[in-house]
Nucleic acid binder design. Sequence first.
DNA 1: TTTAGCACTCAAAATATCCGAGTGCTAACT
DNA 2: AGTTAGCACTCGGATATTTTGAGTGCTAAA
Lengths: 341, 341
Amino acid sequence: MELSERKKIILSAIVEQYIRTGEPVGSKSLLTVLPMSLSSATVRNEMADLADMGYLEQPHTSAGRIPSHKGYRYYVDNLIDQSALDEVQKKQIEACVLAKSKDPDKIVEHASEVLADITNCAALSTAPTATGSTVTRIELVPIGRRTAMLVLLTSKGIIKSRVCRADGDITAEIAEKFYNITSASLIGRFLDEISLATMQTLAASVSEDMLTMFSLLAAVSELALEASKSDVILEGQSNLLNHRELENNTYELMEFLHKGDAIKSLLKSGDKDLSVLIGREAQYKQLENSSLILSKYTINGNDGGIIGVVGPTRIDYAKLIPSVKYLTEIVGKLLTQALEE
Amino acid sequence: MELSERKKIILSAIVEQYIRTGEPVGSKSLLTVLPMSLSSATVRNEMADLADMGYLEQPHTSAGRIPSHKGYRYYVDNLIDQSALDEVQKKQIEACVLAKSKDPDKIVEHASEVLADITNCAALSTAPTATGSTVTRIELVPIGRRTAMLVLLTSKGIIKSRVCRADGDITAEIAEKFYNITSASLIGRFLDEISLATMQTLAASVSEDMLTMFSLLAAVSELALEASKSDVILEGQSNLLNHRELENNTYELMEFLHKGDAIKSLLKSGDKDLSVLIGREAQYKQLENSSLILSKYTINGNDGGIIGVVGPTRIDYAKLIPSVKYLTEIVGKLLTQALEE
DNA sequence: TTTAGCACTCAAAATATCCGAGTGCTAACT
DNA sequence: AGTTAGCACTCGGATATTTTGAGTGCTAAA
């Protein structure tokens, strides 16, 4: 269903004014921002048409119009330039991300912080996960008598490490046995095969020092689990408090964002690189009054994870969509670089 | 200034009822909870006395009384048992903490999550920091052609690690040079001596492969910085939204908690093991309507860090103080165990 | 097709009214 | 001296009522 040129202009103006002010938009106040000169009555007629078509709705009979979900949708799909972002802003975003630590583990986190800051919304993201990959290497770096650093490498290039405290002394002999066991039985295995139960049987093969070995192997298993699980990173929650229209359900929204289930909804939106979910388009009632802008980043051309923002339905799509888009490009680039052999 | 026994009982009852209901407490409703039998007029007289002495205040002439800061203070200092916590609850708390990953790096974080959950407030904590300690060891674990894992050990037992991507191939030769340089010039040094500038001069000593070496050393310097800086961990922010009396300044409060400056206030409260800051006792106006319960944990008898909760002034001190106290004990024990040689 | 004009609508703001929990005080009682 | 019954008084909050004005839809003329 195609709209007349004039209707497009009017719809666009209404959406933008509403985004700016948060107040229902009346026919008169529109006149000042419309490029052509019309009477309020004419605009009124057009608005009535748009309302009939479902692009606008009225809070009550004698108020202005606000965009419906359908209206926002049309605006996002047809009336804005999804890539508009001037060079200055690009540089700024890039600089912000690079300014933080260069630790590849933290890139996504930092990018989320930046995103939350520049959008004044909550940023939502998932770090690259090693799900479905295999173990390519396991290192044990002895630290103290009973402590060691464990490093786990996966076939997707993801590296995880943690300190591990054993139940017995980590002698050179133990370390050697550990290497034997891991290279014989763990290297090349899929991450989800490294279960605690398997570790138990492996450790049992070492007659003496079984406990010590088990504590090491258990840590490996925890590490493998951690590597294949994708935690949701949430930054700038408090920004949500700035948006009055969310006020009644901010708590429900935050709770919802905390629950990892949100990922499910995110990852499900898997078809496109960039997806915008407006209000109830996301299937959760906690998101009824919110919109999500989600964008995938790729590492070496493969799916890496998602970065996005959550805000009220009334967010500035025209500015935020390009920002999110550009940020994922940067993150993808940085991570590809960081993980390349 | 000592209060009569009866005044103590009445004050205590008022504080507890107000904490429970959030409504100003009137003389009549008190009668039902007081252990002795009195007329409302008598209670009224006592309340008037307590108000004169500054322990209670009235929102307006014809309303009940609410505890003043001074009232809460007296209640906390004299009227509750700061260690009351039944065994069941202790077990529960301990179980919750232990249920999460055993990674020593995450103990404080997990404890904070637990604390936020059981208190329905925001939990605030600092992980143990290596400030002022020296470098005891630096390990380089080559991972890929140009990537390696760096591990930094400090004299306080704190271990930090990160992935590092070098600007050139990390050959065996480079690795050896790296060991030479670090053991000659970095081991034994104080963390804050490992500045980026120093690294630059060190790297310059390697005529060839200077860039590669510098990227490694730069990462060491970042690591040293990270090890000596203490980040504030904040969990359960969204719980703050549940407390109506904060509503107007929840945003300011959250913003404030995000800013690392809060640490300053925390660490300053350094005299006692457990400190309770009620309302404006903390010197920040963002905390005017909130109370903090902060407790230090110790590692091997030395200061480790702080764990605490933030909530409205009207939090259940009698329950939370012992909980926080006990949690720091557990954390201290776990960390001592984890870091012992 | 556009526009001026007009009666109409209705949420929000302003105003008025009522209600009752809770107070302080006084005078009587123990 | 401490306690209590009684009573006038206060005042925030709940409820009802009025006012206001931005915005509408419709009609008739340009």
